[in-house]
Simulated scan of single mutants.
Amino acid sequence: MGNVKIVTDSTADIPYDLQRELDISVVPLKVHFGEDETYEDGVDLTADEFYKKLASTSIIPTTSQPTPYQFETEYRRLYEKEKSDIISIHLSSKLSGTFQSAYIASQTLGEDIPVSVIDSKRASYAIGVIVVEVAALANRGASKEECLARLDDLLKDTSVFFMVDTLEYLEKNGRIGKASAILGSLLKIKPILSLNEAGEVYPFEKVRGYKKAVNKIIQEFEERYGSSDIHVGISHAQAEEAANSLMSDLRNHFSIKKQVITNIGPVIGTHVGPGTISVSVTKMTNN
């Protein structure tokens, strides 16, 4: 084990066995169904439980970030246990106050407990793919400086595209207007969404039909990664069969050295809805 510990939040959608294998600490966000029901993402509400609940209620769930105190508590626990340096990598600050909470906690601790807080400017396993690569390096004994250098490369080399099955949840959560949602549904438009350099959701392209969307994503990845060795993560909201099929398609086109298929958890699922598929890719190193 190395002298660097990696912290992230539950929106990274990293499978539990991978969290445990790489000793990644995960601070949960919260999901609220009205005023009376609050759950910690991935702790007392799994992805499957969330989507079942979503389908059986008329309540539109809301989400909230962890408090600075939650991050401070986790940082203290890690440091007191092993006196390790800490790198904390989080959901885009344009989408949540999670990064800000982590940053406030790091400033409260000051120089006593060294924490580097990073805005991934991404969501779901687009965070996860970065966290997993840095955690693997840290577990091989890399220094904090080496981990941060690798992290800088990952932030430049990681791409993500989302395909939503319905525009309903984006409309409910204020990401698009009602007219756009109705029009998209009538025309069977499959919007391909991505995150820009600031970490904001934007419409990358609109195509008609799932197959055309997949072909466009593959084309875009070919231009960005070519024959490079890559780590591919597909996160999905109750669309496992489609996720497996898409991974198979990607294996036919690319040199995939690491692949992960995971669930889109309750917090991200609140905003994108069931049927969503997200594809995240980053370059591997020879180290």
Rank of each mutant, 00 (worst) to 15 (best):
1 M>I: 03
2 G>L: 10
3 N>W: 08
8 T>V: 14
12 A>H: 06
13 D>Y: 01
14 I>P: 05
16 Y>P: 00
16 Y>M: 02
21 E>S: 08
22 L>K: 13
22 L>R: 12
23 D>K: 15
25 S>C: 09
29 L>H: 10
30 K>T: 11
31 V>H: 13
31 V>R: 08
36 D>K: 02
37 E>S: 13
38 T>C: 12
39 Y>M: 07
39 Y>C: 05
39 Y>L: 02
40 E>D: 05
40 E>L: 14
42 G>N: 09
48 D>A: 07
48 D>S: 09
50 F>Y: 07
51 Y>I: 02
52 K>V: 02
53 K>C: 01
54 L>F: 07
57 T>L: 07
59 I>V: 15
66 P>H: 15
67 T>Q: 06
68 P>I: 07
72 E>F: 04
75 Y>K: 11
76 R>W: 14
78 L>E: 04
81 K>L: 14
82 E>Q: 09
84 S>W: 04
84 S>N: 09
85 D>W: 00
85 D>M: 03
86 I>E: 11
91 L>R: 05
91 L>S: 04
93 S>M: 06
95 L>H: 04
95 L>G: 01
96 S>E: 06
97 G>F: 01
98 T>L: 11
99 F>R: 01
100 Q>D: 10
102 A>F: 03
106 S>R: 09
106 S>Q: 05
108 T>M: 06
110 G>S: 04
113 I>K: 02
114 P>F: 02
115 V>M: 06
120 S>A: 13
123 A>R: 03
124 S>Y: 01
125 Y>N: 04
130 I>W: 08
130 I>N: 08
133 E>S: 15
133 E>I: 02
134 V>P: 06
139 N>C: 13
141 G>H: 13
144 K>W: 02
145 E>I: 03
145 E>Y: 04
146 E>V: 13
146 E>F: 10
147 C>D: 10
154 L>Q: 08
156 K>N: 11
158 T>F: 07
160 V>G: 07
162 F>I: 01
162 F>Q: 01
168 E>L: 07
172 K>P: 12
175 R>D: 00
177 G>Y: 01
178 K>G: 10
179 A>P: 05
185 S>T: 10
187 L>I: 09
188 K>T: 05
192 I>K: 04
195 L>V: 12
197 E>L: 10
199 G>A: 06
202 Y>M: 03
203 P>E: 09
204 F>Y: 15
204 F>N: 04
205 E>I: 13
208 R>N: 11
212 K>E: 05
214 V>D: 00
218 I>H: 00
218 I>W: 04
221 F>K: 12
223 E>A: 13
225 Y>E: 12
226 G>A: 12
227 S>M: 14
228 S>G: 10
229 D>K: 15
230 I>F: 12
231 H>G: 15
234 I>P: 00
237 A>D: 05
238 Q>K: 12
239 A>C: 10
245 S>P: 00
245 S>M: 00
249 D>S: 04
250 L>I: 11
250 L>E: 07
252 N>R: 11
252 N>D: 13
256 I>P: 05
259 Q>N: 15
261 I>T: 12
263 N>Y: 14
264 I>A: 11
268 I>F: 12
271 H>E: 07
273 G>L: 15
281 V>N: 06
285 T>G: 09
